[in-house]
């Protein structure tokens, strides 16, 4: 049975492996240079305290590769489900070959066990390797990224560490299960993709923020967390502050809620009448004549305005990775049991 599985699977496995080797070579060649640039840049910026600017420039210079690699790792599990999982049984049903292979001296359970284990482990290995390679390569970039691209943020988190392995296992078994229920390849592929995408969206929206209770803290306003300071030029009106989804000193964190507090600790709404900062704009550092800059923020800060952020700090990256992978492993296990029951009872 192992031979048969390998014989039917070797084509696509070899193609996948070849692509992975290409990726590995490309990453191995460029990775050390990227890391060297990063250390050189950090060494230079810590002297004159301009690291915020360095991070922006460094990430900006590599954002295409960064996004492309992240996307590859996010897509790989879906591909495993679509092209390896869904057709595993539907292909046999459509060609009628299930009647050939399930009438050899081997039970369907055994057939499925070998197919599932061999193909599934390969899919997991590929996705896991790819994830870890990209994690290694993009480490300097991850250290520079904040806000939406922060390491803990939904987009990047799922493309780093060991989570891709869990996603691949789940997507693969999901494909098999959907294939058993739908029994036709194309609809099974479409449904697998839809269900997998829905779960991948639901996870960061509904589950992941609550894996550990998030930290809520207040921070002084500064370059990191102030996105924009809007001082009306016509005089008289009060300035407004909009915040970044970032917290000072905790780069890479995932900010879940972000608010501005006034000096008495009350929430300032994001827009409308109450959003204004009560600071003099006719004289002092916030007057239009003082020019744009740090001065006004320092003044607002001095008055007692603060950022209140609820966030998942970067230190929780690995605990979250393990938990997320564990959750997907449980899903995978459940679907595997279901598919074994189904193949014994229902399918013919």
């Amino acid at each position: 049975m192992i031979w048969l599985t390998w014989r039917q699977f070797r084509g696509s496995a070899a193609m996948m492996a070849a692509l992975l080797v290409l990726l590995a070579v490309a990453l191995a060649l460029t990775g050390p240079g990227l890391a060297a640039d990063y250390s050189a840049g950090i060494a230079a910026c810590t002297q004159d305290n301009t690291c915020d600017r360095f991070y922006d420039q460094f990430l900006g210079g590599h954002d295409t590769e960064f996004m492309a690699l992240t996307l590859v790792v996010l897509l790989l599990p879906a591909l495993a489900g679509l092209f390896w999982g869904a057709p595993l049984i539907t292909r046999e049903l459509e060609a009628g070959t299930h009647l050939l292979v399930w009438n050899q001296s081997i039970t369907r359970g055994r057939w499925l066990a070998v197919k599932l284990a061999l193909t599934g482990l390969t899919a997991m290995a590929f996705a896991g390797l790819c994830g870890l390679m990209v994690t290694w390569w993009s480490d300097p970039l991850d250290k520079s990224a904040a806000e939406g691209l922060a390491l803990m943020a939904p987009l990047v988190f799922g493309a780093r560490g060991i989570a891709p392995m869990g996603y691949a296992a789940f997507a693969f078994v999901l494909g098999i299960t959907v294939g058993m229920l739908v029994r036709r390849t194309l609809p099974a592929m479409a449904l697998t993709l839809a269900v997998f995408a829905a779960i991948q969206l639901a996870m960061p929206l509904l589950v992941r923020p609550h894996l550990m209770s998030p930290v809520t803290a207040t921070f002084e306003l500064g370059r990191t967390n102030v996105d924009n300071l809007n001082i009306p030029q016509d005089g008289g009106a009060l300035p407004r502050v909009s915040l970044n989804s970032a917290v000072p000193g905790h780069l890479g964190s995932w900010v879940l809620a972000n608010n501005l507090l006034d000096p008495s600790g009350r929430l300032i709404p994001a827009s409308g009448e109450g959003a204004a900062i009560k600071v003099s704009t006719t004289s002092g550092p916030c007057a239009p004549s003082a020019g744009p800059g740090e001065g006004c923020i320092v003044e607002i800060n001095r008055l007692g305005y603060r950022q209140q952020a609820t966030y998942q700090p970067l230190e929780r990256f690995w605990p979250f990775q393990w938990m997320e992978t564990g959750i997907y492993a449980l899903f995978t296990l459940g679907l595997t049991l279901l598919s074994f029951r189904w193949i014994r009872r229902r399918l013919s």
Partner: peptide, 25 residues
């Protein structure tokens, strides 16, 4: 059991089918 329309694996050779039989029986 030889099923209706005698299904075989289109991508496998005759020798592969015999090997399949040898491995599974």
């Amino acid at each position: 059991f030889v099923a209706q329309d005698t299904p075989v694996y289109a991508g496998l050779s005759i020798a592969d089918h015999l090997r399949l039989g040898a491995r599974l029986n």
